[in-house]
């Protein structure tokens, strides 16, 4: 699971301008649930037009999961 979180972080960091501000946490509830945080204003990059980038991230992570669990990836906004 830690490996999958690392994968999510890698993919998100590959599409944003400021990779240093990418944070990913994961828990089972019971599906795999990733919470992704990026620099303010960069959410759109992670989502992509019509959600294509976030959908692609989901597709790749699902393939990487040996158990092929249901998964959920949420973008969370940092508290100010």
């Amino acid at each position: 699971m830690a490996e999958l979180a690392d994968l999510v972080e890698y993919l998100v960091a590959s599409v944003v301008d400021d990779p240093s501000q990418v944070r990913v946490s994961v828990r089972r509830d019971p599906e795999l649930h990733f919470k992704v945080q990026v620099a303010p204003g960069e959410e759109g990059r992670v989502i992509g037009r019509s959600g294509r980038v976030i959908q692609a991230i989901r597709t790749v992570v699902r393939v990487a999961d040996p158990n092929h669990r249901r998964l959920r990836i949420d973008l969370v906004t940092p508290e100010r």
Binding site: L11, S14, R45, V53, Q55, I57, V60
Partner: peptide, 12 residues
Amino acid sequence: TLAAIELLAYTR
């Protein structure tokens, strides 16, 4: 899956 990898590579 290849298409997803392509999109991410292209975005990068």
